[in-house]
């Protein structure tokens, strides 16, 4: 379709320049956060503000290593463990479930799919109070298990609904061929279906990770001990205690964005597929 409307060269250049200017304006908050994290405190308060650091200051990052309770790299590690575990649970549970609803006809299937659809739209706020009390009764408050279990509930319905379409789109002939070769349905699932759906599984893994990485509500409610908290809760606490120490705060923000930015830049194609497939088709 790209050849349908060939654009004149001059227009092409004009449009491109305008689009890039829009992009720069749009991403300005990110740039501003990055340069602030590299400025000294005095320079941040300078009027008029400087557009880039006149003296490069990396202390805001280094200082975090010695901040005791608010050790940024410690909470980074906590978030990594929590998000990767939640991702693992979500992928392990949703791949077989998506295979079932994508390829089989069985009683109650419609209702099950509807349940997943509705849970995907539920807000964390609704589950927060009951979950807190349930986990409290199980003595799991300030235990990573509680927040991992809670975070995985965001990734599971999303993953099932995305993967369902992947599984459904695989032609029946492939399954028939596998059966002739002596595969039963269980071995066909592992040997045929999983390998074909790897791109879809990657999308689900990325999103399950990102949901857990970005979570604040579960992390700060279910984990009450600062040294165990994820990085988002760390930022929030830090903001409460050192509200105007913007060099440290912005450094904290940049460190939190780093994994997201890496995933975004390396896997942009997967992410856009996931966003559109997940949101439009459900």
């Amino acid at each position: 379709m790209d050849t349908c409307f060939p654009m004149k060269r001059r227009n092409n250049l004009l449009f491109s320049v305008f689009a890039v200017i829009l992009l720069i304006l749009f991403l300005l908050p990110l740039y501003w956060t990055l340069v602030t994290s590299l400025k000294t405190e005095q320079e941040i308060f300078q009027i008029p503000p400087t557009l880039w650091p006149t003296t490069l200051n990396t202390k805001s990052y280094a200082a975090q290593l010695e901040m005791g309770d608010f050790n940024m790299f410690q909470s980074f590690g906590n978030s990594m463990v929590i998000a990767l575990s939640a991702m693992g649970i979500a992928v392990l549970l949703s791949v077989p479930a998506a295979y079932a609803v994508g390829r089989y006809r069985f009683k109650g299937k419609k209702l099950i799919v509807l349940c997943f659809l509705v849970t995907q739209m539920l807000p964390v706020s609704v589950l927060l109070t009951p979950m807190f009390i349930i986990f409290k009764n199980m003595q799991l408050i300030s235990n990573w298990l509680s927040v991992i279990l809670a975070d995985a509930t965001i990734g599971i319905p999303f993953s099932i609904l995305i993967l369902k379409n992947y599984f459904a789109s695989i032609p029946n002939e492939l399954e028939d061929a596998a059966e002739i070769d002596g595969c039963n349905r269980v071995s066909a699932f592992f040997r045929i279906f999983i390998p074909i759906t790897i791109p879809g599984i990657v999308v689900c893994a990325i999103f399950s990770f990102l949901y857990a990485w970005g979570d604040l509500a579960y992390g700060m409610t279910l984990i009450q001990k600062q040294p165990l908290r994820p990085i988002t809760a760390g930022i929030f606490n830090f903001l409460g205690q050192y509200g105007t120490k913007w060099s440290y705060l912005t450094a904290f923000a940049i460190v939190t964005i780093i994994p997201v930015a890496i995933i975004f830049l390396c896997m942009q194609k997967y992410i856009i597929t996931g966003l559109t497939a997940g949101a439009v088709k459900g």
């Binding site: 749009f26 990102l210 970005g214 912005t250 964005i257 992410i271």
Partner: peptide
Amino acid sequence: RYFTAAKFVRGMMMMPWMIPMTVTALMFKF
């Protein structure tokens, strides 16, 4: 519309959607 930078710009503009809300809140608070 079909111009050279369109796809790239559209892709990059998805960035804010990926950033943890806590960080977005902090950036705008600042």
